[in-house]
Write a protein that binds this DNA or RNA. Structure first.
Lengths: 71, 71
DNA sequence: TTGTGACTTGGAGTCCGTG
DNA sequence: GCACGGACTCCAAGTCACA
């Protein structure tokens, strides 16, 4: 499983847990909604700074987003 | 402390622990030595794929590289 | 052995839209 | 509310020479 897809799955899972839409997450992270959509589907390879903004918006440590949740 | 600098510090620390040069690390990660130098100094904002190659070369989980080691 | 400036190319990230 | 696309802009990727 590649890191980009891992990230996408984690973002989607945590976002759902928060009960917010892609649009709200995008707003909090200072990104475009279409970009968040791409990230969740694993079709984009973001920078670590983008990863950091995403983690902050989801209120989790950045490392969580590229970890395997089943561990 | 921003994530990019955190990453740089972690890479340098772990590389030193391995007792290898930037050149050797660069070779293992499929990068140029000057790029590794930039990363360690926190002057580059790499993508998560680059982060993944780095983690593999250092033989650590990717999440480690953007974690705070003092935790 | 490492830091750094300069450079080209490719892709990150934006902005417009569609069903 | 989300997937997906086209056309952009600009920064990261990737490389080199030199200190």
């Amino acid at each position: 499983m590649d890191l980009v897809r891992q990230l996408g799955e984690n973002v989607r899972r945590i976002r759902k847990e928060r009960g917010i839409s892609q649009e709200e997450l995008a707003l909090d992270a200072g990104m475009k909604r279409s970009y968040v959509s791409d990230l969740e589907r694993g079709t984009r390879n973001p920078t670590v700074r983008a990863l950091g903004r995403l983690a902050a918006a989801l209120k989790v440590p950045p490392a969580i987003l590229i970890s395997n949740p089943s561990e």
